Computed example of a mutant assay.
Amino acid sequence: MLKDVIIKKKTLHFDEPFQIAYEKVETADVVIIKITDNQGKYGLGSAAPDKEVTGETIDKVYNILLRKLNKEFFEFPVSDWLKYHEKIQSEFRNFPSAASSVEEAILNLFASQNKITLFDIFGHYRQKCPIVITIGIKSIDKTLQEVRGRLKEGFKIIKLKCGLDWRKDVVRIKAAKQILPHQCQLILDANQGYTLSQAINFIKSISRFGISLIEQPVSAKDIIGLKKLTQLKSVPIIADESAVSLDDAKRLLSGNYVDGINIKLMKCGGPINFIEIFRLARSFKKIVIVGCMYESNISITTGASLALALPIDYVDLDSGHLDFSDDPVQGGASVKKGEIFIKDKLKLNF
C-alpha cells in the first residue's frame, strides 16, 4: 500500500536561451511525482509536456494527475506494473507525458523495493554509450565556438538545430562539418521548419557534406512529404514530431515513410510503449533514436536506462543536468567525456 502521493509543478531554467525552428525557450515547466510506500521506499516520475508536439499543457497535465493520481489509484502492488500499464494508458489517454510520469514512478518504486534499478529491469546491454549533444540555432561564429567546446568535452555526435532559413542553414552546417574530426558525426534537426520544396533544396545542398541524418524536415502532418524526402535516398530521414503515438509509429514504419524514428517517453506514453516501438522499428530495420523534451533528470534517467538496455543507434538525452542547473533531482543519469551512464540513485530535493 502507498503512504503518500506528492505531485508538484516546477519551472526549470536553461543555463542559456535555446533556439529551435518554432520557438526560443529560457524555461521549461515539468510536473514531478513522488509515490511513497509504508516502508518509506519511494519512486519518482516526471512529465515534460510540449503543446506543440503532444497537445498537452503543463496545467492540463498537472490537473489530470492531481485528479486521478491518489492512493486509491494504486490498487495493485507495484510488482504488477504490467497491470498498471494497461490502467495508465486508459486513464491518461491523450496525455502521454502524464502517462509516462506515472509509469516511471511505479517502476522506480518497484526497483527501490527490490534494491535494483531501472537498468536492472530493462536489461544490461551496455554500461555506457555515446550521447548526442545539441546546439541550438545561433550565428556561425557562436555555433563553431560551441562545437569546438563540445569536442574538447569529449562529445563525438553533434546535433545542429536548423529550420529557420534553409540557405543560411547550409552555410552554417558546412562550416561546422569542416571543423569536425573524421571520427565525429553531424546530425540535424529541423523541427518541422521547412516546406517540402525548401526541404528538397536543403537536402540536395547538404548531400555532399556527409550528414548522418536529419530529423523532421517538414510539418508533422506532412507524412507524404517525409516519404518523398526519404525516397531521395540522399540523407536518412527521421520522424520525430510525426511519430507521437504507437499508431503513428506503426503507420510510418510499416509504410516506409522514413528511414528511422525518434522515440521519446513524453510522446509515446512511457517505457513499455517505448520498448514496443523500438522492437517494431528494429523489425523494419530502421534507425532508432531515443530523444527527449526539456526534461528533469528523472525522466532522462529512465531514457538512459532504456538506452543502456537496448541497442539504440543514437542517444539524444542532453537535457536534465546538461540543460538546467536548478533541476531539483540529484543522481541518476550522468554524462562524462561524451558518454552517458547511470551514476547512482535518484534523490529529490524539494
Rank of each mutant, 00 (worst) to 15 (best):
F74H: 09
E75G: 03
E75K: 15
E75A: 13
F76K: 14
F76H: 15
P77S: 15
V78I: 15
V78F: 12
S79I: 14
S79T: 14
D80E: 15
D80P: 01
D80T: 04
W81M: 01
W81K: 01
W81I: 09
W81T: 07
L82D: 00
L82P: 00
K83D: 13
K83L: 15
K83Q: 10
Y84H: 09
H85T: 06
H85G: 01
E86G: 06
K87G: 01
K87Q: 12
I88C: 07
I88Q: 02
Q89H: 09
Q89V: 04
S90P: 02
E91T: 14
E91H: 05
E91W: 03
R93F: 12
R93M: 08
R93S: 12
N94C: 04
N94P: 00
N94T: 11
F95V: 03
F95I: 03
P96Y: 08
P96N: 04
A98T: 09
A98E: 06
A98K: 07
A99C: 04
S100P: 00
S101V: 02
V102R: 08
V102Q: 09
V102G: 07
E103T: 01
E103N: 00
E103G: 05
E104T: 11
I106S: 11
I106Q: 10
I106K: 08
I106G: 12
L107M: 14
L107G: 09
L107S: 08
L109D: 02
A111E: 05
A111N: 02
A111P: 01
A111Q: 06
Q113P: 00
Q113T: 10
N114D: 10
I116V: 15
I116D: 09
T117A: 00
L118W: 13
D120Y: 06
I121V: 13
I121P: 08
F122H: 10
F122K: 02
G123L: 05
G123V: 06
G123Y: 06
H124T: 10
R126T: 01
Q127V: 02
Q127M: 01
Q127R: 04
K128A: 10
C129V: 14
C129A: 13
C129H: 00
P130A: 00
P130F: 00
I131A: 09
V132D: 13
V132W: 04
I133G: 04
T134D: 03
T134E: 05
G136H: 02
G136Y: 05
K138H: 08
S139N: 07
I140N: 11
I140R: 13
I140Y: 01
I140A: 03
D141F: 07
K142H: 12
K142N: 15
T143D: 02
T143A: 00
L144Q: 09
L144F: 04
Q145L: 13
Q145W: 06
Q145R: 13
Q145G: 02
Q145T: 12
Q145V: 07
E146Q: 14
E146S: 11
E146M: 10
V147Q: 08
V147C: 04
R148E: 14
G149N: 14
G149W: 01
L151Y: 09
L151D: 13
K152F: 00
E153R: 12
G154W: 03
F155L: 08
F155M: 05
K156F: 03
K156G: 12
K156L: 10
K156N: 13
I157P: 06
I157E: 01
K159M: 07
L160G: 05
L160C: 07
L160A: 09
